[in-house]
Design a protein around this nucleic acid. Structure first.
Length: 110
DNA sequence: CAAGTGACTCCGG
DNA sequence: CCCGGAGCCACTT
């Protein structure tokens, strides 16, 4: 029963994130039309474990490229997953974040 | 029905 | 430059 909510919309966008790229909560929220709902995006990520198929929440970071929710993954799982995609993470900070940044409002708008 | 929570973000001191 | 507080929306209890 597809009772589509903000969560489902967020999951859909996150799943569209290309491998080896990252985006921010605010960018997703802005793409959905409510950049002020950035918190809701993060909230959705927390519940992403209930989504099917699971969303690559490890590709979603905060505005600074900092892995704020890496603890929710369980230890450094988030870093390992990002590293597996070729993304370098140091001290919870995505290196070259600006270049790896993937903005749905732009990439999906093309 | 009302209150609480949160993986964010911005603004001020 | 670094630290703290308030605002915001959707979902849960």
């Amino acid at each position: 029963m597809p009772d589509y909510t903000f969560y489902d919309n967020v999951y859909d966008v996150v799943r569209l994130i290309p491998k080896g790229r990252v985006t921010s909560y605010g960018a997703i929220a802005a793409y959905l039309g409510s950049k002020q709902s950035s918190r809701i995006v993060g909230y959705a990520m927390m519940a992403c474990g209930t989504a099917n198929p699971p969303v690559p929440a490890h590709r979603v970071v905060n505005r600074q490229g900092l892995l704020t929710g890496k603890f929710h993954f369980g230890g450094d799982t988030m870093e390992q997953m990002l590293a597996n995609e070729g993304i370098t993470v140091i001290d919870n900070q995505v290196q070259n974040f600006k270049a790896l940044y993937w903005d749905p409002a732009i990439e999906l708008s093309l």
